[in-house]
Design a protein around this nucleic acid. Sequence first.
DNA 1: ATTTGCGTGC
Length: 931
Amino acid sequence: MEAATPLYHFISSHQPFTQKQPRRYSTNFGLINVAETLPETSPSTSPSPLSSSQFDYEKEFHSLNSVRAMHAKMIKLSRERDSKRNMQSFISAYLEFGDFQSAAVLFFVGFAENYLYWNSFLEEFSYFGGNPCEILEVFSELHSKGVNFNTEILAFVLKICSKLRDTWLGLEVHACLIKKCFNLDVYTQCALMNFYGRCCGTERANKVFKEALIHDSLLWNEAILVNLRDEKWAEGLQMFCEMQALHVKANGLTISKVLQACGKLGALDEGKQIHGYVIRYELESNILIRTALINMYVKNDKIKIARVVFDLTDNRNLPCWNSIISGYIALGYLDHAWELFNEMITSNIKPDIITWNCLLSGHFLHGSHREVLAILRRMQSAGYQPNRNSITSVLQAVTELGYLNHGKEIHCHVIRNGLDYDLHVATSLVDMYVKNDDLTSAQAVFDCMTNRNICAWNSLISGYSCKGHFEKASNLLNQMKEEGIKPDIVTYNSMVSGYSASSCIKEALGMIRRIKSCGMSPNVISWTSLISGCSQQGYFREAFEFLIQMQDEGIKVNSVTISSLLQACAGLSLLDIGKEIHCLCIRNNFIGDVYVSTALIDMYSKCGNLENAQKVFQRLEYKTLASWNSMITGFAIYGLSTEAISVFDRMREANVQPDAITFIALLSSCKHSGLLDKGWKYFDHMKTDFGVIPTIEHYSCMVDLLGRAGYLDEALDFIQSMPMEPNAAVWGALLTSCRIHGNVELGEIAAEYLFKLEPYNAANYALMMNLYALSNRWKDVDRTRDKMEAMGVKIGPVWSWVQVNQRIHIFSTAGKTHQEEGEIYFELYKLISEMKKLGYIPDTKCVCQDIAEVEKEKVLLAHTEKLAITYGLIRTTSPAPIRVINNTRICSDCHTVAKYMSLLRRREIFLKDGVRFHHFKDGKCSCCDFW
DNA sequence: ATTTGCGTGC
């Protein structure tokens, strides 16, 4: 094809065309009265009289120049009007040889007969690669030269304006139309409505509809479509109903779009009525309507009806298959979706990128993140190129899985295929790097983005903020403002969340105030971020205070808030408040939320109510990995290893793949029960049978397990054989075991590492002092205490609390003494003397002070858990169990005393310490004295 | 379509 040289170059060649003109709407065709301006020059080939037959022209159409030559001949002989078909041939020829302007000029000045012809012109124009913009340019130019167009041409131009969103020209065309005639025909009115709907808003289009004198079916259909295109679902549906009342017939496109509206609005009844209409007017064979019906039923949660419609469709095309497959996927029936997918393949329908993307995003949304990667591989090996949507889903899955390396590979693919210029892909990349803790790469991708949307900014800001880089986050916030992007509630919430996660409660509250000063209202997410931050950092009381503030401001809690609050209840063992929240969950239908139910299981087990934890667990219809894990953990912290293992077995029967946390729970249940062999078994099998690679947490569990069982040397060997550097938890486990078994030598080795790794952790010094005291090595006790004091480390307060009559009573080594202390000690002495009659001997080994035995007994009596239990005994009545929480690890003397108390006063005592649970009943403890 | 808040362990 030759380079396009516009028609006027040839016909106006006597006028030198030197200046390059700016393209849009300002080209200068010397076109008007073409025949008159044409110079009287003879073409080089001798002009023979042309026949009127079109074929004579077409025979000569070998190149653009030959087309022009023929055109010139035709004009010269003034045979333009001879045949409209001749004109068509020339237009087609110009299009074929790529001279789109000449084609458009001929189209406008030549003739324009009917709508059908225009559409085929537009089709042909685009088919040969012409940009419809050029049609508008030619029209504009002719219009400015004063050419008068008929209304049909104007309507045609209006259609293109509408398509190209050329509001200015469209309004100009409307002005021409008004000048021409007052009563526009239906087609023109439709074009006008279409234009206003797309370019000036639905309201203007509706005005055109209202002002129209006659509302025929074409106009009704267009009016409804205009509203639905603008996602005015309710308005569109309403108009459809009005149209029905007037017995105006709807066309297939309108019906399919109205069905879409029924889906969006959840208007099942209306949807069914339209289904009835479809059957009555025998429109069922229309595949567009069929597909819309399937979608409508899917959106209204009626997948079974959708399936019936699908099954009854015999001319299923690809969109139809895609609809039913995406329906199953949206509702989470991934297996059904695959079944249909395979069925589709056997019916010789090839999936398209939409099908694949639907599978990708569906598996991501339903948490099957690994499958997303498998589907990607499958589609690639089937020869499909992932597009921006595919990449976005895959990146999200990779982000969730934490597969940074996979993410980088996808980044490479993105770069190779030039997709990095796509806004959404780039945003997903930023987010992938942010969530995988690679802020440097996130920043690099961000810096390369030529235009950034608010999501990209927010993603990066949240990355810096959550990692505690508040300065960088604030700088970005200011920078985005400078670049003219207004921070939204998400931006501020990211800051709130970051501050809350770093215990910067004041700053987080400041952000909430800033949201208000910007004229926005802090929403449920802002408050929940603050509350969950408090719950996770141990500021449980503050969590409840902010809950009250939030409710005062009229913000209602949602399931996420509830999960955070339950965490606070679990942390404080606030069983009664936890139960209140459980009621709230039932009232507000939060029970079905997997996060809430998991948090409930955790709350009940940490508040000492294992039965309720089990009940919640059993009633869970859909058990997630986390819910199985928290139930196993629940049994584990009670030392109920048999039960924990049986939950694990049931989990495997349910085909749920265990993860690292499952094995930590299992190993710790073995640890709490001294099941060394079982522990080894799980440790060995977790990698070989389940593909879960042991982390340092698993190793430290094993050290604990070995050590507590008395295999201290083996524990040390095990530490030395570890594939990673042992951390403080590992050495801490060894030191704890050494203290239990009184092994000073090994303990000193562990302590040496610990003092290096955690020089400011008072618990380590306390453990070592305790170990020395057991062996009566008082000088070493003093030396360790001096070392600790030299480091400026202080042993924090030890506290226990018990709830009596809706109030929490705290007994602390640091705080004020309890006002009823006298009464408490009176009862405690009484109990001790009763116990002594039954054979109780105070276990003074727990006291690491070099003082007389009698003094040691006094120290033991002051242990906070004893005071808390005693207070519970005197201020509550049987059979209410007593629940005591302690923030350290219960000593063996308190353990013995609690057993006697449960026997003497016939009370169940639940005691939660920093490590696990003890349930005392009838003089026995659930831990069987192994803890 | 892309961005903010939630559960399981140590």
